[in-house]
Design a binder for these strands. Structure first.
Lengths: 393, 393
DNA sequence: TAAACTTAGTTCAGCCACTAGACAAACATT
DNA sequence: AATGTTTGTCTAGTGGCTGAACTAAGTTTA
C-alpha cells in the first residue's frame, strides 16, 4: 500500500510549490497578491517566499505600482537559476536545445543523419549535449536535468523498448546519460513530449484535455487528460497511428489492416505523390519539403494530394473527438508545416460530426513548429528539478 | 485560481479518508495493522478510528487472533450504516437497486416499457425508487444518495444533454430527483457508470486503466484512466461507437460514415440476422435473446453471425488497445450475454496485433452481468456520501 | 501640509494535527 | 512464574498554519 499519508511536511511542500507556481504564472507578483490568489495566509506566504528567495528560485525586483497604499515588492521567478537540456531524437535528426527554467531557448543544435547505429547516435547525442553545455551561462544550479523524446515506446521506467524506425530495441539510454552527465534524465515518447510542450508553451496552455497528433513518417499521439499525461499501463498509449480506419485496408507492418498512418502520414503523402506521377528534380528525393513548394506554387496535383491526406487526417481527428471530447487538438511534427494545405479538408470532414461534440473545441497546427518535443522534454526535466528541490528542503 | 491550499484540515481529512479506505479494503483489520499499512503513527490511527467509531462508519468486532502478544481489536467497515440507490435507465427498461455502502444489493426492481415519454419514465422511476425505499432496513444514515446511469450524454454539471434512443434533450433529472428525495443525486452516462461498477466490484478492481465497452443497441465506452473516470471536456468522452472503422462505410445518424456501432452492436447483429434470413417465431420480434438461443442450439447461421459481429468487435478492441494501452478491457451490457459466441473471433482478431501491446492485458465479459451500470451508479452515490461525511466533521 | 485612510509585509501568540516514545494491557513462550 | 511480544492509549514536543496586531510606506482628503 503506497498511498500518500499527510503530515506537516506534505502541507509545507504543497504550499511552497503552490506559491512557486503562482509566481511562475503571474510573474511579477507581490506577496499580498499571492495570498489573495492562493487563499493562503499572508504570513504563510511571507515565510515561503523568504525560503524561495534564499534558494535563489525567485527574485525581488523592486517596488511595483501602488494601488492606494504602500507599494508592493514585486517577485519574479528566477528562470535563470538553472538550465535544462531537451533533446528530440527523430528518425533522421537530433535536435537539442538548452533552455532556462521557463522554457526559453538559449542555444540549439541540430544534426542530420541517415542510418546510424545506436552507438553512433549516442556519439552524436553526446556531441550535441557537450556543445550545449559549453554554451550554458553560469547559474546557481547549473544543469538540472536532461529530457529526451524518442520515436518509439518507452516503458514506465524510462527504458526504450522499441523504436522501429531507428531499429532500437531495449535501450537503456537513460542509465547511460545519467551516468555520463550525473543529472536526472527523463526519456519520453516523442508524441508525449510534444503534447507536454504544447501544454506548457504552445496552443494548449489553458486546456486540461489536449491531444497532440504528431504526424511524421508515422503517426503518434500524445494525450493530456485531466491535466496530466496519460501513458497507459505500460507506457504504450497513443498508438493511434495503428488505429484501423478501413476494415479491409492494406496490411500494416504492425500486423493490423487499414491503419490510420497508412493514409495520413508523411509516408502516405510521399507515396501518393509518387503514384500520381510527381517526380523529384534530378538527384533529389521526393520529399515533404518539395511537395510544400509545389503546393505553394499552385501545383494542382500537389494541392490535391494534400487535400486527400487532409481528408484522411480529418477522419482520424473525428475519431479522436468522439473518443476523448478534448478541448484542444494540435497537429504537430513534420506535417504541421503543411497546415495551409490541410486545414480546409480537415474542416470539411468535421462538418460530418455532431455539433455538440465540437463545443469549445479548437483544432490547430503546432505553434512551436519543430520545437514541441524538445521543449516538452526540457520542461519535463525542469519540472522534475523544481519538484524535487522543493521537496528536499 | 481554484488550486488546493493545504492546511491541518486537509491533512486530517486526507488521513481520515485513508484510514477508512484501508478498513474498507482490509476488513477486518486492527489499529496496529492500519498504522503499518498506511505508514501513519499508531496514535494518529487511534484518534481517527475513535472518530469513525463515533460516526458509526466502522464497528469493533471483538478480539482477533494474537500473533504472539496482546490480541488486536478488529475493526469492520459498517457497510450497513446507510444505503444507496443505483438506477440504470435503458432504452426499454429501468433497473433500480438498493445497495449498502459496500455495494451489496439488498433489493432490486425492474420495469420494462416501450416508447414512453420523459414524464412517463419519471413516474416509473419514482415508483421504483419509492418501492426500493420501502424495503430499506433502518440504519444510522438512511438513504445517502441516488446514482443514475442514462444512455446519453451528460454535462459535467449533471444535466442530460441528449439521449437519442429515449428522445430526451436537456433534461434536468438530477434537480428533479434531488428536490423530491432530498439526497445528493448523481447522473452519469451509462457506460461511465458501468466502468465504475466494474472497477469497484467486477473484473477491474485491480486495474487503474480499464476500458468498459457497453455493447447494446449502440456502443458506448467508459474510460477509467490513471484510476479515475475520464469524462472529457464537456462530459462527452467515450463515444467510440461513432469511431469510423470504414472510411467509405454507410452513413450513420451521427453524420459520420462507417461508425463502429453500425458493425458491432446489438442492432447490427439483429440486422445481419434479418438479412441472412433468420425469421422470428410467429408474433415475436427478432431479438438478441432469440439469437442466443439459436446459437446455443447449434444453429450454424446464428453462430456465424456472432462470429462476424465478434470480428468487428475485435477490430474496435484492437483500436482501443492501441489508443489506451489498458490493463483491462471489459465488454458489458446486452451483448455480454453472448460472450461464448463472440470470444473466439475477438481473440482471433487480436492475433493481428503486436504482442508487446498485449502484455498484462486482460479482455473479458462483464462479471456483474446486467448490474454493472446500476452498481456503478450506486457506488458513486456511496463514495460521494463518505467523502462529504468525512469532510464535514 | 497635516490628518486620515489604504495597502504591503512582518511578527507573534495560539491552535491543531502529527510524531515519538513511554506506558499499560493482554497475550504467548519458556 | 518470569520473560518477551504485540496492541492500543496517553503525553509531551514539533512544526506549520492562522488571525490579529503592528510597522512601513504609500495615497487621498480637507
Amino acid at each position: 500500500m503506497k498511498s500518500q499519508t499527510f503530515n506537516q511536511h506534505v502541507v509545507k511542500k504543497g504550499n511552497k510549490s503552490l506559491v512557486l507556481q503562482t509566481i511562475q504564472e503571474y510573474t511579477p507578483i507581490s506577496r499580498a497578491d499571492i495570498a489573495n490568489k492562493t487563499g493562503l495566509n499572508k504570513g504563510t506566504v511571507s515565510s515561503q517566499v523568504s525560503e524561495l528567495l534564499s534558494e535563489d528560485l525567485i527574485l525581488e525586483s523592486g517596488p511595483g505600482v501602488s494601488s492606494g497604499g504602500r507599494r508592493p515588492v514585486m517577485l519574479l521567478f528566477n528562470h535563470l537559476a538553472g538550465y535544462s537540456i531537451g533533446v528530440d531524437i527523430g528518425v533522421n535528426y537530433i535536435l537539442g536545445i538548452l533552455t532556462d527554467l521557463q522554457g526559453n531557448i538559449t542555444t540549439e543544435k541540430i544534426t542530420h543523419f541517415n542510418d546510424l547505429s545506436y552507438e553512433e547516435i549516442q556519439i552524436q547525442l553526446n556531441m550535441i549535449i557537450d556543445s550545449l553545455l559549453l554554451s550554458m551561462p553560469p547559474s546557481s544550479y547549473g544543469l538540472v536535468g536532461i529530457g529526451v523524446g524518442v520515436p518509439g515506446t518507452v516503458s514506465t521506467e524510462g527504458e526504450i523498448l522499441l523504436a522501429p524506425n531507428l531499429n532500437w530495441r531495449n535501450k537503456d539510454l537513460r542509465g547511460y546519460l545519467e551516468e555520463k552527465y550525473d543529472v536526472p534524465v527523463l526519456i519520453e515518447n516523442e508524441a508525449n513530449a510534444g503534447a507536454y510542450g504544447e501544454k506548457k508553451f504552445g496552443a494548449g496552455q489553458s486546456s486540461d484535455n489536449l491531444i497532440y497528433i504528431s504526424v511524421g513518417i508515422g503517426i503518434g499521439v500524445g494525450l493530456i487528460l485531466n491535466g496530466e499525461l496519460y501513458k497507459g499501463h505500460n507506457g504504450f498509449s497513443g498508438e493511434l497511428g495503428h488505429m484501423t480506419i478501413e476494415v479491409d485496408g492494406p496490411l500494416c507492418r504492425c500486423g493490423n489492416q487499414g491503419c490510420w498512418e497508412l493514409y495520413a502520414s508523411e509516408k502516405a503523402l510521399v507515396n501518393s505523390a509518387a503514384e500520381k506521377g510527381i517526380r523529384p528534380a534530378e538527384g533529389q528525393k521526393l520529399s515533404l519539403e518539395m511537395l510544400n513548394e509545389l503546393a505553394e506554387g499552385g501545383d494542382p496535383v500537389a494541392i490535391n494530394i494534400f487535400r486527400e491526406i487532409g481528408n484522411y487526417l480529418g477522419i482520424g481527428i473525428n475519431n479522436i473527438i468522439n473518443i476523448f471530447n478534448p478541448e484542444q487538438i494540435i497537429v504537430g511534427n513534420r506535417l504541421a508545416s503543411s497546415g495551409n494545405w490541410l486545414r480546409e479538408s480537415i474542416k470539411e470532414k468535421q462538418k460530418q460530426m455532431l455539433r455538440t461534440h465540437q463545443k469549445d473545441l479548437n483544432i490547430c497546427f503546432s505553434q512551436l513548429s519543430r520545437y514541441s518535443a524538445a521543449l516538452g522534454a526540457s520542461a519535463y526535466a525542469s519540472e522534475n528539478f523544481l519538484a524535487i528541490n522543493i521537496q528536499d528542503i
